[in-house]
Write a protein that binds this DNA or RNA. Structure first.
Lengths: 215, 215
DNA sequence: TGTACATCAGTGAACGCGCGTTCACTGATGTAC
DNA sequence: TGTACATCAGTGAACGCGCGTTCACTGATGTAC
């Protein structure tokens, strides 16, 4: 528990937004530092920022709104990490592989953030998977490239392949977080590599022209 | 809230175990009926059974012990469902497929049970994946059969393949539970079929003798 | 067969806790004149 | 330039709630004699 000797200066007239950003970042950091979703209470976040509890309500309607906003933030960071991992790779299947590995890596290094965004019960961070810009669009683009170059079946809906790939990557990420003992029978890197490679090869093999198949 | 007119009869001398079983089943049912892990509180379980709150402590040390026991129960039920789904199928790869589909089906029809066993933070239901009899052993046996018949690479450790398959199935199950909107872009059955088929084919394709590869 | 007593499954009331949220307020910031 | 006043970001204290857990107890069940 930190005691603030000098009270935090009050924001200028139109500057309420600044505190909003601080609250969001504090919630995300609290999540990371304590490693527990339950630790993100209105009170804890307020204490983290160094502000009184009711102040939070000046910037968020209620707790749900705060958590939703945190999820949006984290989801954007996840997307960013994946896009960076896949950037500048010419081979489309390899690019997809790196995208997936970036996904798993983000999840493992931010387990509680990943948990709240992808594994929690709430309707939090239920982005419009189709319309909105973001992780799913970026994944779909990579899949479409694979289709265009004949690695994946062109006749299959892009979204169908994208969701399958997402599910596989999510399986690795979620298992690493929830059941580390099971994953440690094999090792994280090996497992991630196996699953991502196999699902890519398997999807490619689902049609005659696919890379590792007989066609 | 149910009001019991006739109080529940007290157990005979050595029969304390009976209530223990009732408590466990009540906790599992509460999980299923309310569809929320938080609803499983000591108080709620006691009310469900029709017994006073402190009675729970006669049968379980504390809340953690109760939840652990529920997980053990659910995990056994999951195993049972999978084994039943894969029984009496001669083709080993098809047997594995049905095992995986049974897994996903159980998860989807008991989402909160699955959540608490496979997706919650606690060290709950951290079975000895190797030693203990149970789901992982059964999966490993099927994988070993595939290896013996040349469908999967014999040189690969069985557990390595088994964990990869588990991760893929878990990905489908967990995504269906946490992100139904994403899954509904494709449909549950289609997704489950895609991922399980692709991961099987992909793993088989990882070595020259595998089924759908060029061998 | 009858009675005194030990056992122990189950209870009622209470504890302290942290939570989300509300409310009347304070006091610096900016504006009108 | 000086003063009265409106605005509004942030506060301190309190609310009611359900939680896990503890404690001294009750009273039917079974046993010893």
């Amino acid at each position: 528990v930190t005691v603030n000797i000098t009270p935090r200066p009050r924001a200028r007239r139109g500057q309420g937004q600044a505190l909003r950003g601080e609250i969001l970042a504090a919630a995300r950091d609290l999540l990371e530092r304590t490693g527990a979703e339950d630790a993100v209470s209105i009170r804890a976040v307020a204490a983290e920022v160094g502000v009184s509890t009711p102040s939070i309500y000046l910037h968020f309607d209620d707790k749900t709104a705060l958590i939703d906003a945190v999820c949006e933030l984290v989801f954007a960071e996840l997307d960013e990490a994946m896009v960076a991992a896949a950037a500048d790779i010419v081979d489309p299947l390899e690019s997809l592989r790196q995208f997936g590995l970036g996904y798993v890596r983000f999840a493992i290094s931010h387990p509680e953030q990943y948990r709240i965004v992808m594994m929690s019960r709430g309707s939090h961070a239920a982005p419009g998977w189709q319309e909105e810009q973001g992780a799913f669009i970026h994944l779909s683009d990579l899949v479409a490239r694979c289709q265009a170059e004949g690695v994946f079946d062109n006749a299959m809906p892009t979204s169908r392949i994208a969701v399958a790939l997402w599910a596989a990557a999510h399986g690795v990420a979620a298992l690493c977080i929830s059941k580390p003992a099971l994953v440690e029978l094999v090792g994280v890197e090996l497992l991630a590599g196996d699953v991502i490679t196999a699902i890519g090869a398997g999807v490619a093999g689902l049609h005659p022209g696919g890379a590792p198949s007989c066609g």
